[in-house]
Design a protein around this nucleic acid. Structure first.
Lengths: 175, 175
DNA sequence: CAGGTCAGTTCATTGACTGAACCGTAAGGA
DNA sequence: TCCTTACGGTTCAGTCAATGAACTGACCTG
């Protein structure tokens, strides 16, 4: 990861994981991918990330098998970046991180995550308290919370103001 | 976090969390703290982190209320850094990250985490499959796995070759 | 007093991130 | 046909963080 040096001396799967997803922006790209963002331009406007960094991250994530580059249009040639199973497997990590951030640093409720089948808000480990099992990522619906800006500048944030199933591609991609 | 810029445009508790623990080395410092490391020099040799960076991280983590600086000896004045509740609350995140790294990138089994009361290996969410509840961090015992180097260079790693309850201070601190 | 330990700070160098500009392909419109 | 726009990048100069080695200062031990 960053600065030519990996965590070489570490014999630890946390360190290994951080070598791959520990760079600046990387986990936010994965988060957006979970939210359904798939296209370069949508990542760009939603994250406010420098273009060069985005290109580098997408390439690394693709090389690591976390995203998959997929042609969705021949002419002009356009690719989208879709999460692989390995990428989807980062959901518990992001969930835990988001919960921690919400608990300790975010005042307002920004989003909630609910079980699509029954509408119950997920528990701390992504399980459904009502149905009593871990909810697959594709069955999680993200709801906007009261703390969210009602009139964001970028189109991607605007689309995300509506309840949205995770992994489902954004509609009106690149409005 | 890194490079003067925070994730300012992000309305997201994941982004907020990453502003605090997303910098290089930070999560590894927290991990070591969970393992029982408390002293500057022990972090230093175990992580192989540059001294200046370690000092900066310890200061930030203390300022953020994740670590607490505590004088344990008057003369010469010596402080140790102990996890607060806020820091301990990062355990699920690190657990998820480690599990992901192990699943996807680590070949050998490096460590396992078991419930102190019954010896059962923890489930994916830090629960005990036998006792059927989430195990408090202080009741988790870390066991070395077969993939671990049997003869590491630094004394901290050597201490960690024995089963070790999380949060419990390292014995033979600074051998 | 010499030597060692611990917990830092200082500093020159390296290298990653940033922001702005530029580029190539292709579509759409006049 | 020419002009413009959209998309998905690449290039580049400037900035800022990480690195590693050296240094500091307080204190203990022999």
């Amino acid at each position: 990861m960053a600065l030519g040096k990996d965590y070489a001396t570490q014999q630890c799967s946390i360190a290994r994981a951080l070598e791959i997803v520990g760079e600046r922006w990387t986990l936010l790209v994965v988060r957006d991918a979970l939210y359904g963002v798939r296209r370069y331009n949508d990542f760009l406007v939603h994250l406010g990330i420098p273009r060069a960094v985005l290109a580098a991250r997408l390439q690394t994530l693709t090389a690591e098998g976390i995203l998959e580059k997929r042609r969705y249009q021949q002419s002009p040639p356009r690719d989208e970046y879709v999460l692989t199973d390995r990428g989807i497997a980062l959901w518990p990590t992001l969930r835990a991180l988001g919960l921690w951030g919400r608990e300790h640093y975010t005042d307002a409720r920004l989003r909630s995550f609910r079980h699509a089948d029954c509408g119950t808000e997920l528990g701390a480990y992504g399980e459904c308290p009502a149905c009593g099992g871990v909810v697959p990522v594709g069955d999680v619906v993200m709801w906007p919370g009261p703390g969210l800006d009602r009139d964001p500048a970028d189109p991607v944030s605007r689309v995300l103001l509506k309840p949205k199933r995770l992994l489902e591609p954004l509609e009106t991609e690149s409005v």
